[in-house]
Design a protein around this nucleic acid. Structure first.
Length: 265
DNA sequence: ATGACACAGAAACTGTGA
């Protein structure tokens, strides 16, 4: 089975590129983040014509997650247990559309969009750390099942995962506590699979639209696939689909793909 | 070996992203 994650930065702006890539890449399950729309606004037709079923969770123009699967999609959950809420005022706090779980071909798939953090003194940063810690705790409880937590973690775990650790726009992605919150999924029984197969430096998954960051190779590696051990033992390979960042109309992120020797069940 | 911010919604700008 081939599973993948992609922060698409608006599915309405990216439908053609995403569906075209799905067809070319022979992907069975795609976890998407930042769809930036409500379910009724999601461009379903292209996906369905390509043979995919959809699960969609979006509340407004921000965030939003979805899963496209051609190996079945069941037991859909639109948040994880204890998922933190966020709002400028306490009475405005809502559980945002940042997590979507489903059972696809016998694997528990989670499409995850971790909060950015914005700045170290911003409440959004505490929200980010809380989100990661709570997700880790929930993940620990399902570590005995074949589970994949795939998405935009908004953490550059190592020095070589970011072009400049002093980039002011990525300060919340490189702190010790953000990196520890990311690493802690290992303690919960998970392995980040893209690293096993693609350990090299300069293997980014995101490049800002601004200032020629892509052609200058100034990016970040922030999109990952954490697999429980019962799934991780079946992994056979991974790719970062760098070519999808090229040309007009690209998302600022590219797909991360994992191959698993797994019988659809 | 690539290309000089993009997106959504409200309103001709603001919020958000990283």
């Amino acid at each position: 089975m081939r599973i993948a994650t992609w922060n698409v930065n608006s599915i309405r702006a990216r439908e053609e590129r995403v569906v075209d890539w799905l067809r070319r890449s022979d992907t069975d399950v795609l976890a998407m983040q930042e769809i930036k729309c409500k379910p009724e606004q999601f461009p379903r037709a292209g996906f369905e014509a390509a043979g995919y079923e959809l699960a969609i969770h979006g509340l407004n123009q921000w965030n939003g997650v979805a899963i496209a699967s051609r190996v079945g999609i069941a037991d859909v959950a639109t948040e994880f247990a204890g998922q933190p809420s966020f709002g400028k005022a306490d009475h405005e706090a809502v559980v945002e559309a940042r997590a979507l779980g489903a059972l696809c071909g016998g694997i528990r798939i989670w499409s995850i969009y971790v909060p950015n953090g914005r700045g170290l003194a911003d409440p959004h940063y505490a929200y980010k750390l809380d989100f990661l810690a709570t997700l880790r705790a929930v993940a620990a409880e399902s570590a005995h099942e074949p589970t994949a937590l795939m998405g935009d973690f908004n953490v550059a775990p190592r020095t070589e995962d970011i072009w400049s650790e002093t980039d002011s726009e990525a300060v919340t992605h490189v702190t010790e506590e953000a990196r520890e919150a990311f690493r802690a999924f290992e303690d919960a029984g998970y392995e980040e699979l893209s690293r096993r197969f693609i350990p090299a430096p300069n293997t980014y998954t995101f490049w800002d639209y601004k200032q020629l960051r892509f052609p200058k190779a100034e990016g970040m590696r922030i999109d990952f696939v954490y697999a429980s051990q019962s799934l991780a033992t079946h992994a056979t390979g991974a790719t970062i689909e760098r070519d999808e960042r090229k040309g007009k109309g690209a998302s600022d992120h590219v797909p991360v793909v994992i191959d698993v020797d797994w019988k659809v069940g």
